[in-house]
Design a protein around this nucleic acid. Structure first.
Length: 941
RNA sequence: GCUCGUAUGGCGAAAUUGGUAGACGCGAUAGACUCAAAAUCUGUUUUCUAUAUAGAAGUUUCGGUUCAAGUCCGAAUACGAGCACCA
């Protein structure tokens, strides 16, 4: 069969009959299927595009046959840096290259037979489209949602462009990989952070995959905590100055021994004449500013800071002085730009305190063991001695009296934990030449002492020593202390030491640092004895009642930096007038068109190339008619894609972005497919944009998308991402030419789990070609009978294909159709109904060949105009079923039964089946389980 | 570091609610057709023991629940993704 010819033939038929046209307002139920529109790059369509387009095409075709009015549109996200750079290099207008690329893309997609409704096609670069993007921006502006702010922005010195935090992820420019630097610039911002909560809440109205919801929630980064006010003492005298910190752990306030301000914190300027070491502070500020955000956030980096001289804070709960530091591990952009530092219970504060010798106060104690009534309290130690020469730990083995332990003991009156530990080590083992490495946090341990028949609750200190030399002195043991002293390896420690306290102590010793877990509070005044959660609530209550702080929610999500210093983007429709300030371009003057010039260069000072085009920049103020200049920044790439799904509903409307009727009829996108890389940023922007339009009454739904799924990537045959440099790129055109579009489509559906990455395989592709050839050959064995030759497999296959198509299990759709084909091959002949069924079920995935075979054999109407086959649940199970028989859960045979056969009779067959008999011989049957039509299990003794 | 995900033959993978693990495809291999090759068709193909009937082991590892676990629970390891000094 000549694939090329028949593919073209059917594509033309579909086109001329407009079978894929969506009718706004049709009586049929609507269904909106959307696949992310591509950026039409110069390199053409990628086989990855083919995967998602085919998948959604298959679903769209199936839904049409099921009687839905399906909207399945396609367009072009055509603003973007590559087109601009190409244009600069070749001195042409970017729109020229974009037109060319779109043409290529469109031809490629058409050659695949994807059932897009091309009558709704548009590009974000069409003035008729970006007119409405600008219009909507003005709505943001009008509603106070857009503002200009001086921002330290991420600046790419290579692209000469400001980047959003998202675009500069990892500290490098997303486009060119150049290291991003900080630059101060006036930027248009959208108040996206106002929507933090509603973007989290709105997820409840969607059916996104859990991992996508989670990704969005993490990105928004909600945290619940408290703001706490610390009064400031200047030169030892309490002042009116207050530093407000944000913390999620206000329960540890009693352990706050210092505070850290971000280097940019405004208080530093305000109190510059009070800070004695202000020069040192200024140096540090300069040092911090020179580093990019990325460097500042690199975890491997050692913490740095400067202690402020002359001012200290006052801990609001105990009145103690707390040192004030500045340090670049505190960010101005999050919380209040100031923290209280609790080194005992925060890893970063701990590091900082260690480096600068700041006191560490433990206020939370982990608990082990089980509490009991009538406990006796005492303080004790657990000493771990390590011999670096032998790489072994000192333990004492109580054998059957208590197993292996470290050295432990009770602290006597007037003794410090260290003195106690040294005494106990000497008494029990004789070693004296020790070096103390460190002391762990206290552990609160409950236990029962058999020898004393008492319950104890102890505060235990862990001490870690290394052995300097083997110097031994006499031990001092009571007669009843029957143990042996043993040096053991780390593995033995982990294996043998089971006592909870000793185990936990060893854990602390192996991983020294802050105690960040839960426990009970100590050294914390009114919080003592409470756990973390209760203590947080009680502390907030306290702070609020005394006016010292309040409950506070913070989000990581920042406002959206909406300006780009680029040519190839939607111009921001505002003009600046010296008299009137920023004035919006009147709605009836939109769109603000990009100038039609082929020569422009990005500027070195960070202005948009548009700034140099005087004829474009200079304009009249719409308000006073005076001289004014246009805003020369353009919108980011994300703008056009934030609402394109609405435009598809009514793409040719020149009165509004989409008519209320169309918006109401099509409602939400029912099924939205895209790449995993867009599940945070693009999806959040689109949801934010839509929520805003909803709030001002312009769209009928707050959430624009119901189901969102994402596809895995197609990798090269070497399992790596396809790239020219690796030479593993597969061009879909080549595959279509050699194997046909249907083969490519079947293969990409069969390749594996749709949501996972999959590597390209030519062999497997050929297998799919073979499958289609087998389907074609079936036409030679048609008979004149009616109905299905095998009701069970027909019904089973309809059920499976229908279910799997709606659940993105495309690989098993193909495999069950292969099974059906195999079944037909085994029959001497098949009916036309048999064949037609296979072709209809296969049609969504291989539309050309199935239509052709259907027509050539006079099987019925065009498949694309037919209805989807239905199945009868009753008939999906064969009349005779083979089921397994287990004895004690092990498979020992299989029996053939009638569908829904009586349990008793099934059991009889099972018990008498040949191999099973052997396993039942001489055994007593305790229990039998018969799962109807599935399995029999006989339990014997 | 935190969050999430994944782990099944030589390979891509199936197994919808716990119910005959490895469907389907690739590759390999034996055979048929052919002068021959290609194409096609028919076997075999988780591993081990065995001539076979059959038996044992087996879904990363360890432990648990259950008549029954790839599937549920707990822990560990590895890989992948996202976030990353977020207080």
């Amino acid at each position: 069969m000549d694939c090329k010819k028949i593919e073209k033939k059917w594509q033309d038929i579909w086109d001329s009959k407009e079978v894929f046209k969506a009718i706004t307002g049709s009586e049929k139920p609507k269904y909106y299927i959307l696949v992310e529109f591509p950026y039409p790059s110069g390199s053409g369509l990628h086989v990855g595009h083919v995967r998602s387009y085919t998948a959604l095409d298959a679903y769209a075709r199936c839904m049409r046959m099921k009687g839905y009015n399906v909207l399945f549109p396609m367009g072009w996200d055509a603003f973007g840096a590559p087109a601009e750079q190409y244009a600069i290099k070749n001195h042409i207008h970017p729109s020229v290259a974009v037109k060319e690329n779109i043409k290529t893309f469109k031809n490629q997609i058409k050659s695949l037979g994807i059932s897009f409704d091309w009558s709704r096609e548009f590009a974000t670069t069409d003035p008729e489209y970006y007119k409405w993007t600008q219009w909507q921006f003005l709505k943001f502006y009008e509603n106070g949602m857009a503002y200009k702010a001086k921002k330290d922005i991420n600046w790419c010195p290579n692209c000469k462009m400001g980047l959003s935090n998202e675009d500069a992820a990892g500290g490098v420019c997303e486009r060119c990989g150049t290291k991003v630097v900080q630059k101060e610039k006036e930027q248009w911002m959208l108040r996206m952070s106002d929507y933090s909560e509603s973007l989290i809440e709105g997820l409840k109205d969607t059916h996104f995959a859990d991992k996508i919801k989670l990704g969005q929630i993490n990105w928004i980064g909600k945290s619940v905590g408290a703001e706490v006010n610390f009064k400031v003492k200047i030169d030892g005298i309490p002042s009116d100055e207050v530093i407000t910190v944000y913390t999620t752990r206000c329960d540890t306030l009693f352990g706050a021994t210092f505070m850290v301000l971000a280097p940019e914190h405004p208080l530093l300027e305000k109190l510059s004449n009070k800070i004695k070491n202000i020069d040192e502070v200024r140096d540090y500020q300069k040092y911090a500013k020179e580093k990019s955000t990325f460097e500042r956030t690199e975890l491997t980096k050692e913490k740095t800071g400067v202690k402020l001289q002359g001012i200290v804070g006052i801990n609001p709960v105990n009145g103690e002085d707390v040192e004030i530091w500045i340090g670049d591990y505190v960010m101005m952009g999050y919380g209040t730009g100031a923290i209280m530092a609790v080194p005992a219970h925060d890893t970063r504060d701990y590091e900082f305190a260690q480096k600068y010798n700041i006191p560490i106060i433990q206020v939370l104690e982990e608990t082990t063991g089980t509490p009991a009534d009538n406990e006796f309290k005492k303080n004790s130690i657990v000493a771990v001695v390590y011999d670096p020469k032998k790489d072994k730990y000192l333990t004492i083995n109580w054998h059957n009296l208590g197993g292996r332990l470290f050295i432990g003991g009770t602290i006597k009156d007037g003794e410090t934990p260290l003195e106690c530990a040294i005494r106990e080590i000497k008494e029990e083992t004789g070693y004296t030449d020790l070096k103390l490495e460190y002391i762990t946090p206290l552990i609160n341990h409950h236990y029962y002492a058999y020898n004393k028949d008492k319950y104890f609750n102890i505060n235990s200190t862990g001490l870690y020593f290394t052995l300097n030399s083997e110097t031994l002195e006499d031990t001092n043991l009571d007669d009843d202390e029957k143990f042996t002293v043993e040096w053991v390896s780390k593995d033995e420690v982990l294996q043998d030491i089971t006592d909870e306290l000793h185990k936990k102590t060893f854990e602390y010793i192996m991983t020294p640092g802050a105690m960040v877990g839960d426990g009970i509070h100590i050294n914390s005044g009114f919080l003592d004895g409470l756990n973390k959660e209760d203590a947080i609530n009680k502390m907030i209550e306290f702070l609020e009642s005394k006016g010292l702080g309040k409950r506070q929610v913070n989000y990581r999500l920042q406002d959206w930096i909406f300006s780009r210093q680029r040519f190839w983007g939607e111009p921001i429709p505002l003009v600046y007038c010296e008299h009137c300030g920023w004035v919006p371009v009147p709605y009836d003057e939109l769109p603000v068109l990009l100038p039609d010039v082929a020569e422009y260069e990005p500027t070195d000072d960070g202005e948009s190339p548009l700034a140099k085009i005087e004829s474009w920049v200079n304009t009249k103020c719409p308000k006073c008619g005076g001289k004014a200049r246009r805003e020369t920044d353009t919108m980011p790439n994300w703008a056009g894609s934030s609402w394109y799904f609405l435009r598809y509903m009514d793409p040719r409307n020149d009165k509004c972005f989409a008519s209320p009727e169309a918006l109401k009829y099509w409602g939400k996108v029912d099924w939205y497919n895209g790449g995993m890389e867009h599940t945070t940023r693009h999806l959040l922007y689109a949801r934010f944009w839509n929520q805003f339009l909803y709030n001002i009454g312009l769209v009928p739904n707050s959430e624009p998308i119901d189901i969102r799924v994402s596809h895995g990537m197609i990798l090269g045959s070497n399992n790596e991402k396809m790239s020219k440099s690796k030479g593993n790129v597969v061009n879909p055109d080549d595959i279509v030419r050699e194997y046909g579009a249907d083969t490519l489509r079947v293969y990409e559906m069969f390749i594996g789990d749709y949501e996972k990455d999959a590597a390209w395989s030519v062999e497997s592709l050929r297998g799919c070609k073979r499958f289609l050839d087998r389907v074609e050959r079936l036409q030679n064995k048609l008979n004149d009978q009616k109905g299905y030759s095998d009701e069970a497999i027909a019904n089973k296959t309809i059920k499976k294909v229908t279910y799997d198509l709606a659940n993105m299990k495309y690989n098993t759709v193909v495999s069950s159709l292969m099974i059906l084909t195999g079944a037909y091959e085994k029959l001497p002949s098949i009916t036309k109904d048999d064949y037609r069924l296979l072709l209809v079920l296969l049609n969504p995935i291989a539309p050309h060949i199935t239509e052709e075979l259907n027509e050539a054999n006079n099987l019925g109407d065009l498949i694309c105009n037919s209805s989807w086959p239905t199945y009868d649940e009753e008939k999906t199970i064969d009349d005779k079923i083979t089921i397994g028989v287990q004895v004690n859960g092990k498979l020992r045979g299989s029996i053939e039964i009638e569908k829904d056969e009586e349990e008793e009779s099934v059991l009889n067959k099972a018990k008498t089946s040949e191999n099973v008999v052997k396993h039942l011989e001489g055994k007593e049957i305790i229990k039998t389980i018969v799962v109807p039509n599935k399995i029999v299990n006989i339990v014997v003794k």
